[in-house]
Each structure stands twice: as structure tokens, then as C-alpha cells.
Design a protein around this nucleic acid. Structure first.
Length: 341
DNA sequence: GGGATTTGACCGAT
DNA sequence: ATCGGTCAAATCCC
């Protein structure tokens, strides 16, 4: 089984690398005014195909994994079913027994505040802080959040938020458990097909004749990215293309991106334009969260606003996506978030 | 007054 | 024994 998983992950990496190369080609072509629209369109189709391949690969690996709890959060012991408060008839001991058997996985995100994006950040969920602890060896305390609907809908999702050692402006978020409170379809965030997104991207490309203007392209690849992670160690098993903007990126930098994936280094960083007045905002990697909603409200939770709020930042379009941003690429943040949201 | 946060205590895991 | 995760009473805030 292990070997099989290795093989699958190897092919996944290959597919993802292919997607990355295609993305680079697309950018290069886009920078060339002589490139035909059809060429770009063809490239985009191929890129999207790599997504499909990866998803298919992931789905097959999911089946292969003998996870006895295909729907985390719904396979709890009876006392954790929706609507039943653990306060009733539950001692501490019961609670911890439950925790032990609870299927769980986590995700880690690092996001940096100070992006100039004042205001709430929304992962689509409301969280309630239930604890805070000083962690050994950590400078900053770790905050514990649970889904507001834990008792009303039996949602078992929790997250931990902690400022990083190296940079207090960076926070690390660890998710646990999938939300089971999102059964009701969210009509406000309709699913967009790959084709529609492809057209959207193409239309944007058409409108951008100068490479510099590429910075205004709403990036929506992430809508299609999906990753399933299981267990405690986060694994990048998703279809994550390398995506380069017309920036002075080097091949080695792109290689670094993929090495990050291969190292399962799951990070998302929003590094603010510390020294420049312009908004620089580059993407190097994408990582997909297995949540209905990914990047969450922890930034504002930790830094600017109280918890248990519904914030908006990446909004629905950024669901399930984790992104590395680096301060090299010109990217109009405000424009991006006003045109995309 | 109701909901959210804080914080000390409890308990399982290591 | 120590650490991490959670509970729950007290407190705060709207």
C-alpha cells in the first residue's frame, strides 16, 4: 500500500510539474503580443487538464486509503451526534475518549497580516474561541477555536491559531476536523465549471495586451483546486499548478516552488509590501485545503478583531487554497480583491 | 440579557 | 511528570 501511494504521489508531482510548465508557457506566450489567442486557449485547456488528472489521481488514492471514516465528523460516537451537548451526561473522561477516536486531520497555514487589507477575513465559518495555552518553547500562546455550530449542528471542526516564532506578524493555523455544519448548499457561492473559468481566464487574457496588465488578472485557478488530506500530517496531494506572473522569476525559483510541494511544506504567506508603496503580491505556490472554506479568519482573530466573526478576505473564491505570496511580483491587491470578490 | 472571551483547572497522551 | 487540548465558571461586550 505504501508503495502504491508513493507511485501515486510521484505521478502527482509529475502532473503538477507539467501544469507548472504549462503555466509558465502561458505566461511567456501572454507576454508575447504575437501569440495567438488560440495558443493561449490551448495552453489553458492543457493546464486545466492537469487539474482533472490530479483530481482523478487523488480520488483514486482516496479510495485506496483504508480510512474507516470516510466522512470525518459524521462517524463519531453516538454522544457526539448533532444537537447533543457534551455537557449532558458527559464527564471529562468521556470527552477525551471521544477525542482519541475522532478522525482528524489538520492543515497549516501561514498568513501574514499587514497586507493593507484591513477588515475581516472570511473562511465562511464562524469560530468561537474556547481556550488559549502557552505552548512550551513557543513565544506566543496558542489559541483554540471551535466551530460555532458545534453544539447546534454537531460540527466538530476546530482550529488552532498561533503566531510564528520567526515573525509575529505571521500566524500559523492548524485545522482539525471537517465542517459538518455546511450541509446546506451555499447558494451564494455557486460552483463554477472549469470551462466557465477557462473562459473567464481567456477573456481576461484577451483584455490584457500588455504584460504589465497581467497583474490585474483575477486569479481563479484555485477554485478548481482540491486536495484531500488526512490524518495529522498535512500532505499535499492536490493538483497545484505552478503559476507565474510576469515577474522576474527564475527557473530556480519555480523549482523551489515545486520543491516546497514535494517537501509537503504547506504554507501560505501574505507578505506585505514592507518597503514599497505599491502593492507587490506574487504567487509562488498554491496549496489546497480540504475544507469547504480554507483560509480563515485567523488573521483578524489574532491581530485585529475578536474571534467568532465572519470575515472576508479570500472569500469563497479562495476556498481550499493556500498561496505563497512573495514581495517581488507587482500585483495590485486592492484591485484584485475588488474585482474578484 | 445573550453571546463571546478569558483563564484556571482537569484529563489524556506521551 | 510534563505537555497539550478541552471544559466551564467568571467576566466582558454589544
Amino acid at each position: 500500500m505504501e508503495n502504491m501511494k508513493d507511485v501515486e504521489q510521484m505521478s502527482l508531482v509529475d502532473i503538477l510539474k507539467q501544469g507548472g510548465e504549462l503555466s509558465n508557457q502561458l505566461i511567456k506566450n501572454q507576454m508575447n503580443p504575437l501569440t495567438s489567442k488560440e495558443t493561449c486557449e490551448h495552453l489553458i485547456q492543457k493546464i486545466l487538464l492537469t487539474y482533472d488528472k490530479t483530481i482523478a489521481c487523488l480520488n483514486s488514492s482516496e479510495v485506496l486509503q483504508s480510512d474507516p471514516s470516510p466522512i470525518p465528523g459524521l462517524v463519531e460516537s453516538p454522544d457526539t451526534s448533532a444537537g447533543v451537548s457534551p455537557k449532558i451526561g458527559n464527564s471529562h473522561r468521556d470527552v477525551f475518549k471521544k477525542r482519541k477516536t475522532m478522525p482528524r486531520w489538520n492543515e497549516q497555514i501561514k498568513v501574514c497580516s499587514g497586507t493593507g487589507l484591513e477588515g475581516p477575513i472570511d473562511d465562511g465559518h464562524s469560530w468561537r474561541k474556547y481556550g488559549q495555552k502557552v505552548i512550551l518553547g513557543a513565544t506566543h500562546p496558542r489559541a483554540y477555536y471551535r466551530c460555532t455550530h458545534k453544539y447546534t449542528r454537531g460540527c466538530v471542526a476546530t482550529k488552532q491559531v498561533q503566531k510564528t516564532e520567526e515573525d509575529p506578524l505571521m500566524i500559523e493555523v492548524t485545522y482539525r476536523g471537517k465542517h459538518t455544519c455546511m450541509d446546506v448548499p451555499n447558494s451564494s457561492s455557486p460552483v463554477v465549471s472549469l470551462e466557465e473559468k477557462s473562459k473567464d481566464i481567456i477573456n481576461n487574457l484577451q483584455q490584457k495586451t500588455e504584460p504589465k496588465q497581467l497583474q490585474n488578472i483575477p486569479f481563479k485557478f484555485e477554485q478548481d483546486l482540491k486536495v484531500e488530506t488526512e490524518e495529522i500530517n498535512p500532505k499535499v496531494v492536490g493538483c497545484v499548478p505552478s503559476f507565474s506572473f510576469p515577474s522576474p522569476w527564475t527557473e530556480s525559483e519555480n523549482q523551489d516552488i515545486w520543491e516546497q510541494f514535494e517537501d509537503n511544506n504547506i504554507l501560505a504567506k501574505l507578505i506585505p509590501p514592507a518597503t514599497s508603496e505599491s502593492n507587490y503580491f506574487s504567487m509562488s505556490t498554491f496549496q489546497v485545503l480540504p475544507f469547504p472554506h480554507g483560509i480563515s479568519s485567523e488573521i483578524s482573530d489574532m491581530i485585529t478583531t475578536p474571534t467568532s466573526v465572519t470575515n472576508s478576505f479570500f472569500d469563497k473564491d479562495m476556498d481550499s487554497v493556500e498561496v505563497n505570496f512573495e514581495p517581488n511580483l507587482p500585483f495590485d491587491v486592492l484591485d484584485y480583491f475588488t474585482t474578484c470578490v
